[in-house]
Computed example of a mutant assay.
Amino acid sequence: MPEAPAAASADSGPVIQAHIRAARTEFESQVAHARAEFEEANERIKARTGRDLILATLIGVAAGALLLGSLIFVKQLFLVFALAAVLLGVFEFSRALVATGRRIDLIPQLVAGAVVVLSGYFLELWLHWVVVFVAIAVVVVWRLLVQMTARDGRTYGAVLGDALVGGFVQLYVPFLASLCVVLLAQDGGEWWVLAFIAVVVAADTGAYAAGILFGKHPMAPRISPKKTWEGFAGAVLAAVVAGVLLGIFMLGLEWWVGVVIGIVILGTATAGDLGESMIKRDLGIKDMSSWLPGHGGVLDRLDSILPSAAAALALYYLFTPLVAS
């Protein structure tokens, strides 16, 4: 009789192990099922929007953390990120243009772009404008001189087009980005930079979510087939709400000023997005590069921010006196 409990304990061991194995198998099955459903949903979203949801989210969160940290703690560190983004954007754009037969001088473009961005932070505004003019002149004259020495029979129209496109690269990427740096250099400018970028991100997120859930009517099918009016409505709502909240709690402005900021930044962000889509359509490409999985290239992420920087700088000069008064 004393040996019965030991025998029962010995018999219960395999039973417990069988239950554990069964529970583990069931758990693994549930995880696999959930993963399959998530991947299926992700593929549907990717097919509809052209983005990989997981990678796009991870990269967006990482970039946002770096941006937030630099602007809050050491705003000069944001200058480093801005300079790197501009140089990568110029490289992407130049490479895409060269692939279509244009002749772009990469080294002068990169050097001139870096000088333009840095001058926006360290020089007076009027000197910055001089630097921008000189940078454009340098890349244009450089292209003409290189073409003169090449003597390869390139037509006059093609040479003129190369020169004009080279100047456009400087205006589109370094110059617009330098306006963001000019804003950064102002007193409290880091909060304005953070605010306008946050509005751009909110508008993009609102458009993305509303487009997925409700999107049926294309907004500009010949330029960007995946954008819908329902998505634009979501962008309007998100941009206005973000503008009001950021205006009140971050910039110390009246609520109506936040509405103006949200609407203006939404307009420039939408124009920048559609404008880059037109450029890519003319170049015959989907993305400027594949360096940022789920997003495309660096310039694909800057398309809405670049023109919005000009609007944000104008809004800063317009509404900052209201805070002082």
Rank of each mutant, 00 (worst) to 15 (best):
K75T: 09
K75Y: 09
K75W: 12
Q76G: 04
Q76T: 11
Q76E: 15
L77C: 02
F78P: 01
F78N: 06
L79C: 01
L79Q: 00
L79P: 00
F81C: 07
F81N: 03
A82Y: 07
L83V: 08
L83T: 09
A84R: 00
A84C: 03
A85Q: 07
A85V: 03
V86M: 13
V86T: 14
L88E: 02
L88C: 05
F91V: 07
E92C: 03
S94E: 00
R95V: 09
R95H: 12
A96W: 06
A96G: 02
L97Q: 06
A99G: 04
A99L: 06
T100A: 11
T100Q: 15
T100V: 12
R102G: 04
R102W: 10
R103V: 13
I104R: 06
I104V: 15
I104A: 11
D105C: 08
D105R: 14
D105K: 11
L106W: 09
P108Q: 06
P108I: 07
P108F: 07
P108V: 10
Q109W: 08
L110F: 00
L110G: 04
V111I: 15
V111Y: 13
A112L: 00
A114L: 04
A114M: 03
V115F: 07
V115P: 05
V116S: 03
V117P: 00
V117N: 01
V117Y: 02
L118Q: 03
S119G: 15
S119H: 10
S119Q: 10
S119L: 09
G120T: 09
G120Q: 08
G120Y: 10
G120C: 04
Y121G: 01
Y121E: 03
F122E: 08
F122C: 02
L123S: 06
L123D: 05
L123C: 08
L123A: 12
L123I: 11
L123E: 07
E124H: 13
E124M: 12
L125T: 11
L125Q: 07
L127M: 13
H128I: 07
W129I: 15
W129H: 15
V130Y: 08
V130E: 08
V131N: 06
V131Y: 08
V131H: 01
V131P: 08
V131W: 05
V132N: 02
F133M: 14
A135V: 07
I136R: 09
A137D: 10
A137N: 13
V138S: 04
V138P: 06
V141D: 00
V141Q: 10
W142A: 10
W142Y: 12
W142E: 12
R143H: 15
R143I: 12
R143V: 14
L144A: 14
L144E: 14
L144Q: 14
L145K: 04
T149D: 15
R151I: 08
D152L: 08
D152C: 01
D152I: 05
G153H: 10
G153M: 10
R154F: 09
T155G: 07
Y156F: 14
G157A: 12
G157K: 12
G157Q: 11
A158Q: 15
A158E: 14
A158D: 11
L160P: 05
G161I: 12
D162C: 01
D162W: 01
A163C: 13
A163I: 04
A163Q: 02
A163K: 03
L164H: 02
L164V: 14
L164N: 03
V165K: 01
G166P: 09
G167Q: 02
F168V: 11
F168D: 05
V169D: 00
L171D: 03
L171Y: 04
L171T: 02
